[in-house]
Write a protein that binds this DNA or RNA. Structure first.
Lengths: 371, 371
DNA sequence: GTGAAAGCGCTAACAC
DNA sequence: GTGTTAGCGCTTTCAC
């Protein structure tokens, strides 16, 4: 292997780090040869290279990424900016990005914008100059601000279409159609869409696709909202829903759907017996709740990984900016939150249970460890 | 303000970035003066400085962090390494780190070790040379490997005591004592400790403290496990618990506790009527589950922030390595999962409810947005 | 207070 | 193949 940075670092305490000059002197070659031996193996005599590598190892040489970066203008770092790393949706995406970056030998700088446009810009200001490219997942910035950034460094935007910037979105249209078809197949005739943030590009797409799909299937679809796309938002939506009952609901995302189910249940309605609920995204929690949440699964990890690979391709000049946003496939995951429409009209009063028996349990990551 | 990097970047398209030389020429001063104007304001004539700043702004000058880093050997970046960013425990810590780093003008590089010792080292190999210091939260590496790293760059270790390396832990002893006192006060006489990973430093501390506290309160405490410190681990523990019933359980962490409650409930036991359950950490989910989880709250965000501040202090030479690990206070948060001990002996057969009514609902971040 | 000049450690022509 | 020589853009003595 040509990379000196994996061998055990010799920490000669108190002495300054070993450079290619030290190695060169010791190996009796020129510094540039040492450099080549590591950055362009093959361009140097096998025997010489071997000798250099041995000396480097003995001396505990490690390449200084800063120096390399200064002369190549490549840091091999990329940034991923998310509005909230605590949100499971983004957590998965970050993981995907991390995976793809790691495979390519890149390091990921994570910037959490804490839901703030201002903090996002600040983070970007600090980060952009030090990285080779940026993945923007759920940016709160304006399109023009994003375009600005993308003029400085390669940028890939996730789940949002920004003109002139490479974007990666999921197939919301397909997801909406599948969800509607599924509910239609279960005998539901009216669907309520519980909307997410008005400013959300995905929300617009989902609602529009829903309308089209409903028309095709000869179903009715109404919309309530917008709601904050989280559990509290879902609870709130549940309240509103009581006023205009329906047998089937599609929520903007899983967190909203989960809050909704919780709220409906607390209100004495049974899911899915009286109301079927469908979410979007398939976050980890979707299969942990009871009943399991039927949802339009977005490949979150893949999304992060794909965006990152696109970005790396751009960075390494293997690919120009794409015109239309790339679309990732989705699939409907059917779980317990949807069922055949019951014949009787739903009504809160007819709810069967108190809430006391229901346990509102926890999240948890899929992975094994905790510490 | 002296920092040129916050003004709108002038992206003169197609032209190479503006350097101090460009600014110097345009302002009629030497490059070194421009440098000083930004890095040591005050060491330069006010008028000159003003002129330089104006020119810099007009030209769209931004300081190149790489070049600066090369000559100062400071990148103003720190790394935080976690075994799994999907784990809510670490998510909070990362946020805290991000907050503290941001305040000090530092950028955080996140490395997710994916629960692998090997990946952790690989990430560290890539990252360490490019950062000024490292926060190790839940490292899977050996003490000696950690010491190795800490010889290269400042390191702070979280929730683990490593000799010769600055560490930050929570007051496990106090937490254990409070938990025991709480349960004792509710009339419980036997406590079962559901252990986490055998290799966990925190697990050892908690168990030991529990024994001491139990002795003080004249209670009995037994231990089962080890279990994987997550929800599935808790489910498994619930199974084992059925064989040796007790009225009170303390789990290694919240995820385990939540899984445990779920398992017990599914097995027909009522929490807290028949079994009281206490967790550790107070992850976000602890207050979202039903019943709410009584738990020893660790200041997770504070942990990340404090560790980071320590690290920055070390980096900036404001502080030497500490001898003993610093201890962060904990507090017992009492919620619905603990109650007065019922007089009748518990027995699975006497369980009152079927599971059907219980909803195992979701996680969700505390924050508002989703996209 | 400001300028000149020497690096920081590496890469990249350009010779030989 | 390998050595020589410039930089990359900034900071930092050391003079003036």
């Amino acid at each position: 292997m040509a990379d000196p940075n994996t061998s055990p670092p010799i920490t000669s305490p108190g002495s300054r780090p070993v450079t290619i000059y030290d190695v060169a002197r010791q190996a009796g070659v020129a510094p540039s040869t040492v450099s080549r031996a590591f950055s362009r193996p093959g361009r140097v005599n096998a025997a010489t290279a071997e000798r250099i590598r041995r000396v480097a190892r003995d001396l505990g040489y490690r390449t200084n990424p800063l120096a390399r970066a200064l002369s190549t203008a490549r840091t091999r770092m990329i940034a991923i900016v998310v509005p909230d790393i605590g949100n499971p949706f983004f957590t998965q995406i970050v993981r995907g990005a991390q995976t793809a970056a790691g495979e390519a030998g890149y390091t990921v700088v994570l910037a959490d914008a804490q839901e703030s446009d201002r903090l996002e810009r600040a983070a970007l200001d600090r980060t952009v100059p030090a990285v080779d490219g940026v993945v923007l997942a759920g940016s709160r910035m304006s399109d023009s601000a994003i375009r600005m950034i993308s003029k400085q460094k390669p940028v890939v935007v996730l789940n949002r279409a920004v003109v002139d910037v490479p974007c990666l979105v999921t197939d919301n249209a397909r997801g909406a159609r599948d969800a509607v078809a599924h509910l239609g197949g279960l005998g539901h005739q009216q669907i309520i869409y519980v909307a997410g943030p008005a400013a959300s590009w995905a929300d617009g797409m989902r609602w529009q696709s829903l309308r089209e799909a409903a028309a095709e299937h000869d179903l009715q679809v109404r919309r309530i909202g917008p709601f904050s796309p989280d559990v509290p938002g879902g609870l709130q939506a549940a309240g509103q829903l009581r006023a205009q009952p329906a047998s089937a609901v599609i929520a903007y995302n899983d967190q909203l759907a989960i809050g909704l189910i919780r709220g409906l249940t607390a209100g004495g309605l049974h899911v899915p017996r009286q109301v079927s609920v469908v979410g979007f995204d398939n976050i980890v929690a979707a299969e942990l709740v009871t009943p399991g949440l039927t949802t339009v699964a977005a490949p979150l990890h893949t999304q992060g990984a794909t965006a990152t690979r696109h970005l790396l391709a751009m960075i390494e000049g293997r690919r120009g900016r794409t015109g239309e946003p790339a679309v990732l496939p989705v699939r409907l995951v059917v779980r317990g939150s949807t069922a055949q429409r019951s014949r009787k009209r739903i009504s809160p009063a007819s709810g069967t249970t108190s809430v006391s028996g229901s346990a509102w349990h926890a999240p948890m990551s899929t992975s094994a460890g905790s510490r």
